[in-house]
Amino acid sequence: MRIDLAGRTAVVTGSSQGIGLAVATGLAGAGARAVLTGRSRDRLDAAAETLRGTVPDADVITVACDLATEQGAAELHEAVPAADILINNLGIFGSRPAMDITDEEWRTYFDTNVLSAVRLIRLYLPGMTGRGWGRVQNIASDSAIVVPLEMIHYGMSKTALLSVSRGFAKEAAGTGVTVNSVIAGPTHTGGIEKFVHELVGADLPWDEAQREFMRLHRPQSLLQRLIEPEEIANLVVYLASPQASATTGAAVRVDGGYIDSIVP
């Protein structure tokens, strides 16, 4: 399958590393203009250099802003007034005993993981529907469905994203714009390495720590390993393509079989 996104502008939030950078790289490889976002200018510059190392002729721009705030969303929209593809990947996670999660932490997770996506959809969706083509994807998680005891505030935010996606898909009905969630399973990123070591022991070598984490904390995984960011990106790029024109309002899984269900 040849995916051609030439002439399309793709905004990918939280794209200075991990899944976001892999997604932006995949979209750039298909010909899209990639817009990288994050709070750190230095990390964004490094990410853009990494992307160009993989896709030498890539059209890449960076926008440093805090998308957990209304001001940050406005700054991004001012810098990039129109987008054909919006990938809401920005998110935070961390372990916390359920009874210790404070009101402020609940608000922070909702603002960062949910409202950041809602704001950008409100800003970019009208242009997409007006042009008769667009792709919106919200990067959710297996934790949206299998809520982990050690981070129910994170699970809550990802469950909310499923509703946001379905609702805005209805708003875009019949316009040529699709809105979907991507349910990512346990993925190998820098952030997850720290998280894994927190749960199974900081002194274990990475390969052993990963095996222990999957055995003790994610035993449902049929893949029995962490997913690589590029594997998430492959699905995202497909859903952003013209070939995925009939997929909308869906929660599409790339979870390594983690969720024990035969339907999405």
Rank of each mutant, 00 (worst) to 15 (best):
V147E: 02
E230Y: 03
Q224L: 05
D103F: 12
L226M: 12
V114D: 01
N180D: 10
L235P: 09
T178F: 09
Y124K: 10
W106T: 03
G130D: 13
W133A: 10
A209Y: 02
G174F: 05
T129A: 06
G167Q: 09
V136A: 05
N89I: 03
F213T: 01
L162P: 07
L125T: 13
A140K: 06
I192P: 00
W106P: 06
R215K: 12
A184T: 12
W106E: 00
P205A: 04
Y154A: 07
V114I: 15
L235K: 05
I152N: 04
S116P: 08
L125C: 11
E230C: 02
M99F: 13
V177Q: 05
F195C: 01
G155M: 00
R122F: 05
A117T: 01
I183V: 15
N138W: 01
G174C: 04
G176D: 11
T102Q: 00
S95H: 05
E171V: 15
M156T: 15
W206S: 08
A209S: 08
T189D: 01
T175E: 04
G130E: 15
D100S: 11
Q220E: 10
N138V: 15
G134M: 09
H188W: 04
H217E: 02
W206D: 10
R218N: 06
H188A: 14
I227A: 03
I192E: 01
V164I: 14
T159E: 05
R215I: 02
P186Y: 06
R215E: 11
D203F: 00
K170R: 14
W206Y: 13
N89T: 03
E105G: 01
Y109P: 10
F110I: 14
D100Q: 08
T159G: 15
V136E: 01
S165Q: 05
R96I: 00
E104C: 02
Q220F: 06
R119G: 05
F93H: 07
A209E: 04
T178M: 06
G130I: 04
E230A: 15
G127R: 07
R122N: 13
E105Y: 01
D103P: 05
G201V: 01
I101W: 00
N113D: 13
K194W: 01
A98T: 15
K158Q: 07
N89W: 01
V177H: 09
N234C: 07
P229R: 08
S165K: 04
E171D: 14
M214P: 12
P126L: 04
E228Q: 14
E105S: 06
S141M: 01
W133N: 11
P229L: 08
F110M: 13
V164L: 09
E230V: 14
L162Q: 11
F93Y: 14
G134Q: 10
H197I: 00
A172P: 09
I232F: 06
P229C: 11
L223K: 11
A160Y: 03
T129E: 07
L125Y: 10
D142P: 00
G176K: 09
T159H: 14
S157A: 12
S163N: 12
E193N: 05
S143L: 02
N138D: 03
K158W: 09
D111V: 03
A209D: 04
V182I: 15
Y109V: 11
K158Y: 09
V147R: 02
S181D: 09
D100L: 02
E193W: 03
L199M: 14
